[in-house]
Design a protein around this nucleic acid. Sequence first.
DNA 1: GGATTCGCATACGGTACCGTATGGAAAAAA
DNA 2: TTTTTTCCATACGGTACCGTATGCGAATCC
Lengths: 207, 207
Amino acid sequence: MPQERVKTRTSLDRSDWIHAALDVLADKGLDGLRVEVLAKAFGVTKGSFYWHFKDRQDLLSAVLTLWKEGRIKDIIKQTTAAPGRTLPQIYHVIEVYSAARSRKGMNIELAIRDWARRDPEAAAVVEEVDRWRLECASRLFIECGLPEKEAKSRSLLLYAYVFGQSLMVFDQYDADVPSLQSWIADVITLPTPPAFPAGNAVPATQS
Amino acid sequence: MPQERVKTRTSLDRSDWIHAALDVLADKGLDGLRVEVLAKAFGVTKGSFYWHFKDRQDLLSAVLTLWKEGRIKDIIKQTTAAPGRTLPQIYHVIEVYSAARSRKGMNIELAIRDWARRDPEAAAVVEEVDRWRLECASRLFIECGLPEKEAKSRSLLLYAYVFGQSLMVFDQYDADVPSLQSWIADVITLPTPPAFPAGNAVPATQS
DNA sequence: GGATTCGCATACGGTACCGTATGGAAAAAA
DNA sequence: TTTTTTCCATACGGTACCGTATGCGAATCC
């Protein structure tokens, strides 16, 4: 008999709880991530939760692991897709990680990084994700012909800028913020800084 | 932990509570900032707290106001000190805001910016502080002869980089992280990017 | 020196969680 | 069918807070 592979909504499994936890983490932060709140959101009681998880920390560790593996897979995917077009890929990485592109993803990032300031397990996860991202981005810069030290520096600048930007409030700073951001992306990416006005178009001279 | 401040230990006033709250904020974040915990740190009960403050929100608002005014005064001070030596001042700003320089100050920064993600009052404070800093930094770049758009862009890059760096874990990324940071400071500050190896020395060709 | 205000202690009720113990219905296994 | 396993509900004790009410000694004012 062919078993119904359709996701039966009659019961919850570990994965459901973990994904819901990531949602709550995104807009309430770690301290807003409460098992009774999660249960209420599912319309069940915490009796269900404690059948799937030993305790709250069990859920938190699972959240960290899922996030870590997802981010590592993603950065590998983002940096190995189109060989021969490395420079556009760098711009793409910058854009992908912008808060406007994925508000929820960035909120999770910020929540976990704040978490990591006080929890060693979260700090270890963040460190591993940072290492992967920095090394993947460095490889792109090296493929563009930059020396290793400069590649590492530009990678660090890239990620620090992207995350730092998501911490700031600068909507009213300039009438044309996107053009500022585009110019910055060029500074981070290109060996020689551009002059204003500069578009976000990728130079065609890359191969 | 209780009372670092030297005072006539006869009684506590509003200022004592607010400053202690900033300490806790740096360590435990907003959710760790609890009235009864603060009181215990002072060796008093919360009866004292509720004599000086209407409620917890009253304290939180006072914390935001104190932080805002302190940051605004500080950025003005940091960017108006030495006329004619603007370029070294930019490097100084970068260094001052590095996490290594003032761990506690950066922890407060991060706690308040995380706070601002969910609280409009905190968000307004962060926006005002960001506006001051960006405009003060822009002025330095403009004094160096850069056009306004580029000055604004470099200022945004500067602060985003500094804050973003404090979110990341990259101790093991390279054997000589300080040289990477120094190179990055040059990229942010100088019109033409430096080559490796580059020191953090400020070029004497300024002003 | 009595009255008043100050600065805090004590005590209380209430909320929101955590984790455990236990029961029970429904599905799966036997 | 009977048994077992799965998945969740209910109930409970405990902790850590919040904010209020009230008491109370010591300083301050009249």
